[in-house]
C-alpha cells in the first residue's frame, strides 16, 4: 500500500513538473490580428474569391502589408480564413464583404492558406 501511495504521489509530482516545463511556453501559434500601429508602408488590398471548392490564388507585392477581404462568392467555412506564416497564425471570420484580415508585409514566395476547417485551400503568391 505504501508503495502505491509513493507511485500516486510521484505521478502527480511528475505531471506538475512536466506540465510546468511544457505548458509554460504558451502558444507560438496564436490567433493574431495585427494592430494598425504595427503596419508600416502602404497597405495593399486583396479580395479573396472562391473557385469551385477552393480559393482563387491571389498575387500580391512583397514588402507591403496586406488587407484581406472576401467577396460574395466565398461561402460557408471558407469565409473563416487561416494563414499559418512562420509559426504565427493569422485568422479571421470574414462574415461580410466589409470584414478584413490584416497580414504583415511578406517576403517573396508562395503562402498556402485554408479555411478554418481545412476543407478549402488557396495560395497567396508574393512577387
Amino acid at each position: 500500500m505504501a508503495k502505491n501511495i509513493f507511485y500516486i504521489v510521484s505521478i502527480f509530482v511528475l505531471i506538475i513538473i512536466a506540465g510546468f516545463i511544457f505548458l509554460k511556453g504558451g502558444a507560438v501559434q496564436e490567433n493574431t490580428n495585427i494592430q494598425p500601429g504595427i503596419i508600416q508602408g502602404e497597405t495593399q488590398k486583396v479580395v479573396l474569391s472562391q473557385e469551385d471548392l477552393n480559393y482563387k490564388d491571389v498575387i500580391v507585392k512583397n514588402g507591403q502589408p496586406i488587407l484581406l477581404s472576401a467577396d460574395g462568392s466565398v461561402n460557408g467555412c471558407l469565409r473563416s480564413v487561416v494563414f499559418n506564416i512562420e509559426g504565427r497564425r493569422y485568422s479571421k471570420y470574414l462574415r461580410t464583404t466589409e470584414d478584413t484580415l490584416q497580414l504583415p508585409a511578406l517576403k517573396k514566395g508562395t503562402y498556402t492558406f485554408s479555411c478554418s476547417m481545412g476543407m478549402g485551400y488557396g495560395k497567396l503568391i508574393v512577387e
Partner: peptide
Amino acid sequence: ENFIPKYGFFLFFAIL
C-alpha cells in the same frame, strides 16, 4: 526553434 512552445503542450498530453 520554439520546440517547447510549438510542440510541448501536445507532447505532454500525448505522453499522458
